[in-house]
């Protein structure tokens, strides 16, 4: 058995040199795939994830359509080369579960009643994986949905927190996720202030949980700023300032 790595050093810094409340570097782009109706690409630490949205389109199979709203379908998939050891491309139990939670995290933000009898398909493709890929996937997928022009109540933005060395820290990477003692993925709608995804594995005391929830929200709000910036950059580059007043005669 190899010796357990120390996840936080004596200066309070983590393995990659971050402080407890620091996010990994994030890069977000919108409209990266030309053949999709909406798309986004996110780099969240070492995660590299592409999200694509197709639809609304005709629902197949026909018997599964809903007469009053759209059916939301979601596939989270990890590319065979996204991890150190080749991953079988067939959907694993874990991927099927994550597909479900991503779908359920995004559904409350969408006004599916505006598109009856149709289907909206979301693809989240992990090209390189690190810790927290589901929340990064949700952040990208929400951007792709906005890019596709589907009516939305709010954006959805995700961020994870976890417990390492008995301390609650923001945004776990892969090593911290594996060695640490708890992981809590979190996604919410920042303007409505409603939580859409909350999972927890590990043991947290009620106090730790409350602290973790608060920290996750702060982290997600920081990600939201970057999400917003990416969308504005795609649609208003070279445009006028944010708010303009035009005087019109008569």
């Amino acid at each position: 058995m190899k010796e357990k790595k120390k996840l936080i050093d004596e200066n309070g810094l983590r393995l990659d040199g971050r402080k407890w409340d620091q996010l990994r570097p994030i890069k977000i782009e919108v409209g990266t795939l030309h053949n999709a109706d909406g798309s986004a690409y996110i780099e969240f630490g070492k995660n590299k994830i592409a999200a694509a949205v197709y639809g609304p389109k005709e629902m197949h199979p026909k018997h599964a359509l809903l007469p009053d709203r759209a059916v939301l379908k979601c596939r989270y998939h990890m590319a065979p080369f996204s991890v150190d050891e080749r991953k079988n491309p067939a959907p694993s139990r874990r991927e099927i579960e994550i597909s479900k939670v991503i779908r359920e995290a995004l559904q409350p933000s969408l006004i599916l009643e505006d598109y009856p009898r149709t289907a909206i398909q979301i693809y989240v493709e992990v090209l390189q994986s690190d810790g927290g890929s589901r929340v990064a996937g949700i952040t990208a997928a929400s951007l792709a949905l906005a890019d596709a022009g589907i009516n939305m109540r709010d954006m959805v933005v995700g961020c994870a927190v976890g417990k390492i060395e008995g301390k609650i820290v923001l945004d776990l990477d892969d090593a911290e996720d594996k060695e640490g003692s708890g992981d809590m993925p979190f996604a919410f709608m920042p303007n409505l202030n409603l939580v859409t995804l909350l999972q927890l594995d590990g043991l947290f005391t009620p106090d730790e949980f409350r602290q973790a929830l608060e920290l996750a929200q702060q982290g997600a709000r920081r990600v939201y700023e970057m999400q917003r910036e990416a969308l504005i950059k795609q649609y208003f580059s070279g445009g006028a300032g944010e708010t303009t007043v035009v005087e019109e005669g008569e």
Binding site: S109, A146, N151, M152, R153, D154, M155, M189, P190, N191, L192, R228, L231, I232, Y235, F236, G239, A240, E242, T243, T244, V245, V246, E247, E248, G249, E250
Partner: peptide, 26 residues
């Protein structure tokens, strides 16, 4: 003379507060 206020928005953003008539996508 009437003035038009234009604002860049993304889904979920508050445009204004007050009493207005609702148009498309609001």
């Amino acid at each position: 003379m009437s003035s038009v206020i234009r604002k860049q928005v993304i889904p979920g953003e508050v445009i204004v507060r007050g009493d207005y008539r609702i148009g498309s996508f609001v």
